[in-house]
Design a protein around this nucleic acid. Sequence first.
DNA 1: AGCTCGTATCGCCGTTCCACGATGAACGGG
DNA 2: CCCGTTCATCGTGGAACGGCGATACGAGCT
Lengths: 116, 116
Amino acid sequence: MPSPQKKDPCAPITVPVAAPDRRPVEGPEADEELALLAKAVGHPARVQILRLLVRREACICGDIVDELPLAQSTVSQHLKVLKQAGLVRGDIDGPRVCYCIEPRALRRLKALIGSL
Amino acid sequence: MPSPQKKDPCAPITVPVAAPDRRPVEGPEADEELALLAKAVGHPARVQILRLLVRREACICGDIVDELPLAQSTVSQHLKVLKQAGLVRGDIDGPRVCYCIEPRALRRLKALIGSL
DNA sequence: AGCTCGTATCGCCGTTCCACGATGAACGGG
DNA sequence: CCCGTTCATCGTGGAACGGCGATACGAGCT
C-alpha cells in the first residue's frame, strides 16, 4: 500500500476559512431549523457528546461509549440524532467510525440562537 | 382608584443593567441546564412564541393564540413549558395574563450555546 | 348574584423519545 | 478463511410529548 501512515479520516474537506452563512436567521424556515437543532441538543447525553467532540478538537470514535454511563446502542442512537440534525459527521475509518462536530452547523445554531 | 392609567405588569423588576451571569458554562450542571433550555426551544411553535415575545419587546397576552394556528389549550401548554424552563414569565393583569421573555434566561442560553 | 371573557387544567389519543439487550454487517488480522 | 472488534440496527417496554375538546377557575362587569 502506498501510504504507510493512516490518513486522517476527519481531515477538513475543502473549507479552510469560515464562509459566513448567508441564510436568514428569521422566518418560518429558520424557526423550523432552530427547533430541529435545539431539539437535538435537548438531551444531557447529547450535550455531553457534543462537549466531548469539541474538546477533542480533532475527532474521536466510540471512546464516547466509555465516557458515558450508557449502553453502546444508546450512544449510537444519540449519535444518530446528532448526525440527522447535521451537528455531527461520522467518517468511516476501517472497522471503526470517527465522529467529529460539523462546525458549520454549530455556527448556524449559534447564529439562530443569537437572533432571539 | 388612585391610578387612572393601568400600570404595566411587565415592567422590569429591579435589574436595570445586565448583571453578567456568574455561573459556569461547563460541567454536568451546565450540561443539564443547557439540555433543559434547548429542549424547551426544540419545538417550532415555541420558537415562534419566543420570537413574538422578543419582537414585541414589551409583553403581550393571549394574542399569541391568534398568531398561531393552534388551539388555545395547546398554546397554553407550550407557554407552560417555556415558563417551566424559565424562558418566559407570566404576570397576571386582571383577567388576562401578560407574558414576556426572561432576558436573564435568554442570555444564559446564549452563553451556554456559545460555550460549545 | 349571575355572566362573560380569558386562561389554565384535565383526559384522551396517537406519536415519539429513551433505554436496553440481542442480532447483524463491515472491516482487519491471524 | 474464519474470527474478533467495532459499530449500526432491530425489537421492546415504559415514559414523555403534542394535539385537541371539554371543563374548571378567576377577575371584572352589569
